[in-house]
Design a protein around this nucleic acid. Structure first.
Lengths: 208, 208
DNA sequence: GTCTATACTCTGATAGAC
DNA sequence: GTCTATCAGAGTATAGAC
């Protein structure tokens, strides 16, 4: 049975680990970084979590679950497609501020451990399926232009995740500072859904 | 002055280094991997290139230059915008086969060394400017719908680069194998430009 | 130029006292 | 539960013979 203090230490470690792992990814994170961030000795990290791997898995599992449930609530809502897109974009840009690079975190983990990532992706499949079916239905009744649902989903993910992911490169290319990029992002919450919906508008000769 | 053999060794090392660095990124590449791939002793790598860093810089510089010149020739061509997009997509997917993850390579380097990446991005700026101006002109004369040029450029980059980058995750999500993904990609060369051009079509009330 | 052997450093993990 | 000291392994880089 754990003492009050024990529980607190464990939580402190997790908070610090989350912060550092999300920021630097698995490989570049040192146990010493987490120790410093949490104010807890390095050997205690091992006492509580046994290994760097275990600690990471714990953090990743928490983050990914929270990520999934957010996605889920948006996709399962009763909003029309454009609003869903808007919410997804807004949510992702929110991540990109307070929680700098969650998407990068997920992608880097994917590279580190492809097999386990597959399992995680499978956990996301019910959500995907919901969106997939929704798109299929709208293509069928001509509300949106003919498109393979998977392709639309990939386009959405690309437009939403990539700018968060490649932010440093994009800022350099566009030659703009942090403030300008934030403003750009805020605009994007409005303009991106419009861009997508425009692309999905059926042409006259496609309408039924 | 170098002997014939010396020049050859240097080139062998570079080829092997390119292959391994592009595949695994800087951090996960071991000098031993490059030694094995090239059939040249590890200590000789140091003899020729002094350090892992120097070797990497050399490879990266070559790759990035070649990447730039490809982009340049496409953007500077006289083709209309949709064809340019098609060429860009096709070129990137080509990378994603023979040269698996050049985009990932560039992105990971960006994360590793943001400052130098800024310089590299600046080298790409003349190309960006060309495309930027082209978009501006077409927005101005009403050929395409109003959009901030930078935003369109980011959308293009997202749609083209992200699927290459996140391929493992996407395959897992869509639950498809390599063969199916390749087929999907081939389709995409045709469908993506249409998707984009559709999004850029001016609505009746926007036309001049 | 090329090889073998080895030094050096960084970092995750453990031992063992308290 | 917590700390200090230390080990063990991996990986880059160098020394020095040929």
């Amino acid at each position: 049975m754990k003492s009050d203090n024990g529980i607190k230490a464990e939580e402190l470690i997790l908070q610090a680990a989350r912060k550092v792992f999300v920021k630097k990814g698995f490989d570049k994170t040192r146990m010493q970084d987490i120790a410093a961030e949490s104010g807890i000795t390095q050997s205690l990290l091992h006492y509580y979590f046994r290994s760097k791997d275990k600690l990471f898995e714990t953090v990743f599992e928490q983050e990914f679950s929270s990520y999934l449930s957010t996605m889920e609530s948006i996709v399962n809502s009763d909003l029309p497609l454009p609003q869903k897109i808007e919410n997804l974009v807004a949510r992702r840009l929110q991540d990109s501020e307070g929680y700098p690079v969650l998407s990068y975190f997920v992608l880097s983990e994917m590279a580190r451990n492809p097999d386990r990532m597959k399992d995680n992706a499978r956990r996301a499949m019910p959500i995907d399926k919901k969106l997939f079916d929704e798109i299929s239905a709208q293509v069928a009744d001509g509300t949106i232009a003919p498109i393979v649902p998977n392709e639309l989903m990939i386009n959405l993910l690309s437009l939403v995740l990539f700018p968060v992911l490649a932010r440093p490169m994009l800022q350099a290319m566009m030659n703009i500072n942090d403030e300008e990029f934030e403003a750009f992002n805020k605009q994007r919450v409005q303009t991106l859904p419009k861009f997508v919906m425009r692309a999905l508008q059926p042409l006259p000769n496609e309408a039924r």
